[in-house]
Design a protein around this nucleic acid. Sequence first.
DNA 1: AAGTGGTCTAGACCACTTC
DNA 2: AAGTGGTCTAGACCACTTG
Lengths: 249, 249
Amino acid sequence: MESMQALPHFGGKLMSAQVSTLLMRELKSGIFSNCKKLPSEMELANMLGVSRTVIRDSLSDIEREGFIERVRGIGTVINRSVVNMTHRLDLKLEYSDLIREGGHIPHTDLLHVSLVSASEHIAAALGIKSGATLIKCDKRILANNIPVIYSSDYLSAEMFSGIELHEINWSEPIFDILERCCGLTVATDVTEITPVIGPAEIRRMLNCSNENALLKMEERSYSRPTHPVLYSISYYTEFFNFKILRKKF
Amino acid sequence: MESMQALPHFGGKLMSAQVSTLLMRELKSGIFSNCKKLPSEMELANMLGVSRTVIRDSLSDIEREGFIERVRGIGTVINRSVVNMTHRLDLKLEYSDLIREGGHIPHTDLLHVSLVSASEHIAAALGIKSGATLIKCDKRILANNIPVIYSSDYLSAEMFSGIELHEINWSEPIFDILERCCGLTVATDVTEITPVIGPAEIRRMLNCSNENALLKMEERSYSRPTHPVLYSISYYTEFFNFKILRKKF
DNA sequence: AAGTGGTCTAGACCACTTC
DNA sequence: AAGTGGTCTAGACCACTTG
């Protein structure tokens, strides 16, 4: 536990976020990767050269994600099964991450980008006027050449004013495009999940047999604070084993 | 904003938890139900007669659940769409709550309780020896008399030593039974979700037609800290519209 | 009794946004 | 310049578990 170093004050970034990132790295594969508990809050504060308040802020975050559990009189217990858990639907927003996590290589094909008029439903989700112009981006995603997702993304065209749409590489993750072209960071997202048989055309594109069901996901993505930027509908095959950590409020 | 009152120190219960509960109530249907922002941390501290630290602890929790977003230089922004969101899979562990949230009445039938021997898979999930005795509780759940869930719960029989099993009302929520009979509180739970067609017998019990898919949920529930107490497999019909709030870590 | 996390106080300064 | 949240200090007491 001697190899941790004091953190420098780094412009812009928040201290507690840095501490969280550092602790998670050490929990997954660093000096805490074989421990049952973390050092006490006081020890951590001294090790990293920050106050106990900062440590506690960071530990709260990590605890809420399920990675640790703080118990009075005992200490900060590490939840190994959660630390090593893959395919966490509640912490990853990008399917490319989820595919890579399973040791597969993501790839996009059947890409189709078009301009459409916003239906009432989608306009409400994006907080724009019904009938406004939308960019619709349809694509199929493969994992090691097996089709696993079909998705349709809807974005307000207004956000891309002054940008040549055909110069954008739409096969890239949509969040990366939003970041680079619009300067928008998506950090939170509400997803509605439903098991479905799904439309015949989509089943065909995903090579579904009669025994296969699909997971329909309807997503609303928000940039800080609380500004809707993306609506999307996608169909996932049984290829994925999504896991969710659930906590009582 | 004058109608909030200072909180009394209440034996045993934690201050910040009380503040969270109070703020959530006011956010949902109280004095903040029509606001875009919360008062500043200092104001809240004064209003409730606690320190700013307590307010910040409480706001961290509420923020992590997505209900608010704190922005430096701006304030604490309320995320209305999340506050009003129902059927949050990540915050509710009990299907009876989810059914009632939709305005329906939950009801259990086709109840069957038996003793079985633990398979290797389940033994590993529950942290017990393969072959140990398990209580298996199968049931069908209805919402307003429509069958919507079929579930099988597995519990280590050892936890119920000295208790007459037939005196337990197994149609009650399993978490209530664990609490009352074993003194165990389940607060966290890892659920794996997969869209499936599902076994024919279960499809029959859930009145599935050819157009219906099912959501298979494999759950591992833990009591504090990190102690597995329940394994269960259940099938949910398309009746539910589960929503998940997802945040990038 | 000693050590842990949980809560609390009363100040202070910094970084950021808005006016 | 004023107000916000983010961090910090330097204490303090409590509830709980272990020796």
